[in-house]
């Protein structure tokens, strides 16, 4: 009887506490880390201008979906993504973009250095990823000036993403 109660207690504990960002249900767990918006690698834009330019959370979600789909299907860089947890990637990139665009999200993913560690991203791959993001933003109707403004937040992260 006691052992059954203990078993039930053990099962319910994780259900009561919020799941840890490194081991979300439906995602492959990664090594534990301290979540912080600082991990997003850039400060958020002030005001709601950029969030509006990207169509709010709904627009950002569509952009991230197109962006992630294109990266996985890409003939050049697809293999970098092939063994990646697509569910986790989709969630954390959405959070990161949403946070930076000041569209009302917190970022719970890893910092850029750890997230890209040992992926072997070369400069040409990074440029390809930028082009896929440009395609996704253009498909959502984001103006080129606003696209570049957003990229200006991502461009300084190059050193944490590209190896060597």
């Amino acid at each position: 009887m006691f052992s059954i109660a203990l078993l039930m207690a053990l099962q319910t504990v994780p259900a009561d506490a919020a799941p840890a960002p490194h081991a979300m249900p439906g995602e492959e767990p990664v090594a534990a880390y301290a979540p912080s918006n600082a991990n997003a690698g850039a400060r958020a834009f002030a005001g709601d201008g950029m969030a509006k330019a990207f169509g709010g959370q709904a627009g950002i979600r569509r952009i991230v979906d197109t962006f992630v789909n294109r990266n996985f299907a890409d003939p050049v860089i697809g293999e970098i993504f092939a063994n990646h947890d697509q569910v986790r990637l989709r969630r954390t990139i959405f959070e990161q973009f949403c946070f930076i665009l000041n569209a009302g999200c917190d970022y719970s993913g890893r910092d850029m250095r750890n997230a890209h560690k040992d992926m072997g991203v070369q400069q040409a791959d990074m440029n390809r990823i930028v082009e896929n993001l440009q395609f996704a933003m253009a498909a959502e109707g984001v103006s080129f000036a606003a696209q570049n403004r957003f990229l200006s937040k991502l461009a300084p992260m190059r050193g944490q993403v590209v190896e060597r």
Partner: peptide, 9 residues
Amino acid sequence: QDMRHGGKL
């Protein structure tokens, strides 16, 4: 061993 041509924006 790492040569790779093209790829600039």
